[in-house]
């Protein structure tokens, strides 16, 4: 019984898995596009148009433009995170929970770990696509004069975005293997919500210093546990000149998170498909 050696067979199977995912993405573009457009649109609409227009303090007054600039970077991070959850974690919960349709891909002639890596890769591609959509939205949706001022550092941008996308997709993989259909509400209520609100979407990390107990900037310290803060701060480094966390911290932490979450996610994936 002739068999091909594992490396070329695995490579072909891996490419085919990606092709399958991209085909599904193309077929479901009608669902994908509204999903990735609506969130940044709503946030930009409320914070950059409604708030300045009604004179709400946040983002209003003299700091409005700085706020717009800070927010755009945060929105890119948020989009990446939500693609990790919606593009990787939720489909995986469904596939493990009841449809079982991942079975045929698990039986494809490649190591099971690579099936999980494939999921992360297509999740990251979706994330980057969603992130790109934030810019035209933020450029158009704002009140008069509240324009984000972007100063693009290209080298940082083209390295931070893929890195952040892979990190968020790996986070999605990890969640997808931990949560069951029954516990998905908990995923949103207890994990996604704090990550998004305390992930530096609406403010930069350095701005949190005044939130203190005694002499300790407790909030600034606490949010360091939040993976999204590094994405948002990295995006500020890539897109703006506003003060942000040093890139010497952002890069190693993002790389470390990628490694950790990939490991956890792949381990969880193997545990779910093998017994």
């Amino acid at each position: 019984m002739p068999v091909r050696s594992t490396v070329p067979a695995s490579r072909d199977a891996f490419v085919a898995l990606l092709l399958r995912d991209l085909t599904v993405l193309r077929k479901t573009l009608k669902e994908f596009l509204p999903r990735v457009v609506l969130q940044p649109f709503l946030l930009a609409f409320v914070m950059l148009y409604v708030f300045p227009t009604i004179g709400q303090r946040v983002g209003g007054g003299a700091q409005a433009e700085t706020f717009a600039t800070v927010l755009v970077s945060g929105l890119v991070g948020l989009s990446l995170l939500f693609q990790g959850i919606q593009g990787v974690a939720l489909p995986m919960v469904a596939e493990f929970g009841y449809t079982k349709e991942i079975e045929d891909r698990v039986l494809a002639p490649l190591p099971v770990s690579l099936v999980a890596v494939g999921k992360v890769l297509t999740g990251a591609i979706q994330g980057m696509f969603a992130a790109c959509l934030v810019f035209p939205i933020a450029a158009v949706v704002h009140a008069k004069g509240v324009v984000p001022h972007l100063t693009v550092h290209w080298l940082v941008l083209v390295t931070i975005v893929p890195l952040a996308a892979v990190m968020c997709a790996s986070l999605g993989l990890t969640f997808g293997t931990i949560f069951e259909p029954r516990t998905v509400p908990m995923l949103f209520g207890l994990i996604v919500l704090p990550i998004t609100f305390l992930g530096g979407t609406y403010y930069s990390w350095s701005a949190l210093a005044p939130v203190k107990v005694g002499g300790w900037s407790w909030l600034q310290t606490l949010v360091l546990l939040n993976p999204l803060i590094y994405v948002a701060e990295g995006m500020r480094g890539a897109l703006t000149t506003v003060p942000h966390m040093h890139l010497y911290i952002v890069y190693p932490v993002l790389i470390g998170l990628c490694a950790l979450l990939l490991r956890l996610g792949i381990g969880g994936f193997r545990k779910r498909v093998l017994s």
Partner: peptide, 15 residues
């Protein structure tokens, strides 16, 4: 991964 090249599976459930 090598063995999977040789097998075809019809599982109990619709996959």
């Amino acid at each position: 991964a090598l063995a999977k090249q040789l097998i075809g599976v019809v599982p109990q459930q619709n996959t």
